[in-house]
Amino acid sequence: MEIAYTVQPRPDTGVYNAKLGMWLFLASEVMLFGGLFSAYVFLRMGAPPDTWPHGWLSVPLGTLNTLLLAASAVTTLLAWAACKARRFDRFKLHLGLTLILGTIFLGIKGYEYRDKWLHYEVQLKDGRIADGHLVRARTTAETVVLHGRYVADRRELLDGRRKHGPHEELVIPRDQIVRMQNYAPRHNTFMAIYFALTGLHGLHVLGGLVVFAYLWGPGSRLWHVDPEHFTNRVEVAGLFWHFVDLVWIFLFPVLYLT
């Protein structure tokens, strides 16, 4: 039993099944991220004046990731174009590049996550707040060592773009600590929505990479049986990947720059 239009486009609609299916799925993805972006806007608008953090994320790393993902989107398209031109060797090359670029993207994202995880805000009994990265090697049962600075008020931490004093080694006895919290999702709504948005986006990147790895490796056997069908698969997977890039194009300015 053969299902119609799995490879060739249906004449009146002009698309094959999987392409329409992918666009439908992407439409639902637009609404999924739309819900999250709405949540972002809602939370940001609802925050009392001057309480929304700025400049907490590394702009150089974000820029680099934007460029990496854009480059990977381009190599994906070239992989598909290579399939169209029936050049399997170039397909392997370009999709391989996509895989590498996507993996580097995830690596950088992971580094950024780790950086936030080790970043602590420590409320001291004398009212000061220590803010900095945990120096794990020197932290003991009695003292916590941070590489950072002291501030008198939490609000001083809100704008990371502003110039502030030098970072130094802060040795804090544990019995002086009222509350110690890292920059995890529970830190505040900004961190929460940051992790929610980039986490979900990261899962999409991971999913795309798994699909690409399949198409690059075992899935490419289809090429030798039905190159047209295989080309369609590459196109559809590419559409998904471009959408993932599209989401990041908005995530980067929204979270890193504004």
């Binding site: 854009a70 989107a73 994906t76 590419g238 471009h242 959408f243 890039d245 194009i249």
Partner: peptide, 11 residues
């Protein structure tokens, strides 16, 4: 604008 480029040309 970037999104337009990616959606318009790459997709």
């Amino acid at each position: 604008f970037n999104a337009f480029l990616v959606a318009g040309h790459l997709m």
